[in-house]
Nucleic acid binder design. Structure first.
Length: 576
RNA sequence: GCACCCGUAGCUCAGUGGAUAGAGCACCGGACUUCUAAUCCGAUGGUCGCAGGUUCGAAUCCUGCCGGGUGCGCCA
């Protein structure tokens, strides 16, 4: 057990039990980081009323029964009843030493749960936009993190591969030819393909009529139509996969679970809802009306499960995902990483599923993703007002990074510089998405995210590059830097203490589904390291035992930064 | 009208009911014959939107306002 907060919680709980009886042994001792010590226990203030004594007396009682001689160097009652706890340097060093031999770096292995994660979900024949970028990056980080914590993560890429636009798209594909340059646009610039189809649909009545007929054929299972439809999807998949490869995202074709996969479930779902009296026909459409969901002018808002033309919309497919994930995937928790604007819709889907008894004990969670804005505070667009092509945006990030690398590393060859620029550029974009709490809107700003200062990807990558440089320069292998760790200097102490918090930070991301907390931890760690780097020579340390200790601390820091960034889906180049 | 998100330093953002609310950027002042200065150290900077309430204690929880954003019947 390396996490001081966890260790102190147990110790203080024991003291509470010893002092006030077994009933109090479960009380949260409220261990928090302190500005007056390493940690403080705040339990005494809350307990004072319950035990009918003054807070300071309660604190004194806790301290009297507290057995922390091996962990703390100083225990002090302060203010109205805070218990300040200062850790022993040898204890910190010992725990840091243990991390050196722990490939999980202090991360707990949790009781495995089945967790489908719905994320990315681009549309076939449409450009992914920055909103997709964010759900993709955040969802992937959550998937990696939950997996590392020991869970059975099931990635679910709910692509938009079904619905009315496909009539139009198929007709257009048929006209231009499956092997044409126009069709190839699907792989590189899908919006161009979509727009071309759209223009024809809006301007050519005969084409529009054929498109509508094609939708019917598609839903009716017409073989030739299905073949063209699959073609469309194959071309789009090539585009998705190129984006995922560029982004270094873990999604593969095996994770595809698009809307079309639920086709067979939609009819029965509607029948069941109707049979159970949950859904009713209104204005020709099959709708679910739920208590407490009213729209404009107090009118009840429906969740439409079957349209008046007999087609199925996203209301029914989203219900199908719940049914499938609880019944087939045996989900304990379903994570939906989807835009914040869908909040109302998802609430209605969850509530409907609950009423239909499809949820059981499964907990659906909406990880709300805020909109991405430009520096002008409006939805991100190009200067001419068009939506930004995601690949172009990623290219620009890499280009900007390349410009910096060209200036700072003239000593490296072109290939090496290009590789660094790729990792830095992509890492910067991903980290920027992850470092801000996912539910708020965020302002997309290249200059800020590519900065080498502040809570940015490049800053963290730079810290790892400097560490690797130390080992390279010394001709040493980090794996062989085994210590022993001894903590004396303030910067060594701060760094070592920080290292002990990694596991707790990872666990917190798993609990709260908030990757930005891991970013905050890693940034803090990197800052602690750079301070250490400035004030504590490693290779040049004159005393061999000091050198060995610092090398071990440096190696643990490297492992932690690389592992932490890895959980976020960000790589760190060997040199920068 | 209803729902969700937001309002914290000039800007971008953190903040687990605990003491004097933090970080980065910007601005100002310092530190390079370096283990990568793409860095570090320091200073300045606050009516936590407003008003009540709960609490020993509120940026945090509750209620009501004000302001901004988004969504709300046949696209998904």
């Amino acid at each position: 057990m390396a996490d001081p907060q966890e260790v102190l919680t147990q110790r203080v709980q024991s003291a509470l039990g010893a002092a006030f009886g077994a009933d109090y042994a479960e009380t949260d001792p409220v261990i928090r980081p302190s500005q007056f010590a390493d940690y403080q226990a705040n339990a005494a203030l809350a307990l004072a009323k319950r035990v009918g004594r003054k807070p300071r007396d309660v604190a004194a009682e806790i301290v009297a029964h507290l057995d922390v001689a091996d962990v703390c160097r100083e225990v002090e009652i302060s203010g109205p009843g805070f218990v300040n706890l200062t850790l022993r340097e040898d204890w910190i060093a010992g725990r840091a030493q243990e991390l050196r031999a722990d490939d999980r770096l202090g991360t707990p292995r949790q009781e495995p749960r089945n967790i489908p994660i719905d994320y990315s979900a681009p549309n076939v024949a449409k450009e992914m936009h920055v909103g997709h970028l964010r759900t993709t990056v955040v969802g992937d980080a959550l998937a990696r993190t939950l997996e590392f914590l020991g869970h059975n993560v099931i990635r679910q890429n709910h692509i938009g591969d079904w619905g009315t636009p496909f009539g139009m798209l198929i007709e257009h594909l048929l006209e231009v030819g499956e092997d044409s340059a126009d069709a190839a646009l699907l792989k590189t610039d899908p919006n161009a393909f979509y727009q071309a189809a759209r223009v024809k649909f809006d301007g050519d009545e005969e084409f529009a009529a054929r498109s509508r007929g094609r939708v019917v054929a598609l839903q009716g299972g017409d073989a030739e139509t299905l073949r063209l439809w699959r073609d469309l999807i194959e071309l789009s998949k090539a585009y998705f996969n190129r984006i995922y490869a560029t982004l270094d995202v873990t999604l593969t074709d095996a994770d595809l679970a698009g809307e079309s996969t639920y086709n067979d479930m939609l009819g029965p779902i509607c029948d069941e809802l109707q049979a159970k009296g949950i859904a009713e026909v209104s204005e020709g459409a099959l709708c679910v009306f739920l208590d407490g969901f009213t729209g404009r002018e107090g009118k009840p808002v429906p969740l439409i499960v079957r349209k008046s033309d007999g087609g199925y919309g996203y209301g029914s497919t989203d219900l199908a995902t719940i049914k499938y994930r609880t019944e087939e995937l045996k989900a304990d928790r379903i994570v939906y990483v989807i835009g914040a604007p869908q909040s109302l819709h998802l609430q209605m889907v969850y509530e409907t599923a609950r009423k239909a008894d499809w949820l059981g004990d499964t907990e659906p969670v909406h990880v709300q993703i805020g909109n991405v804005l430009g520096t002008d505070g409006k939805i991100l667009r190009t200067r001419s007002g068009a939506p930004i092509r995601l690949m172009a945006l990623l290219d620009e990030a890499v280009e900007r990074a390349a410009k910096v690398v060209a200036e700072t590393r003239p000593d490296l060859d072109d290939a090496a510089r290009a590789a660094i620029a790729r990792e830095v550029g992509i890492g910067a974009v991903k980290y920027a998405d992850l470092s801000i709490s996912h539910d708020t809107e965020y302002i997309f700003d290249f200059d800020r995210m590519l900065a080498l200062n502040g809570n940015t990807g490049p800053y963290l990558q730079y810290a790892t590059a400097r560490i690797r440089s130390i080992f390279r320069k010394g001709g040493l292998d980090p794996a062989e830097a085994t210590g022993p760790v001894v903590v004396t200097e303030a910067a060594e102490r701060a760094l070592a203490l920080r290292l002990l918090g990694f596991g707790a930070a990872v666990a917190q991301v798993g609990d709260t589904l908030e990757p930005h907390r891991l970013c905050a931890y890693l940034f803090d760690l990197a800052q602690s390291f750079t301070s250490f780097y400035e004030s504590c020579p490693v290779l040049k340390a004159e005393d061999p035992s000091v050198r060995a200790s610092r090398l071990a601390l440096t190696a643990v820091t490297l492992d932690t930064l690389v592992k932490g960034l890895g959980l976020l889906g960000v790589t760190a180049p060997e040199r920068m």
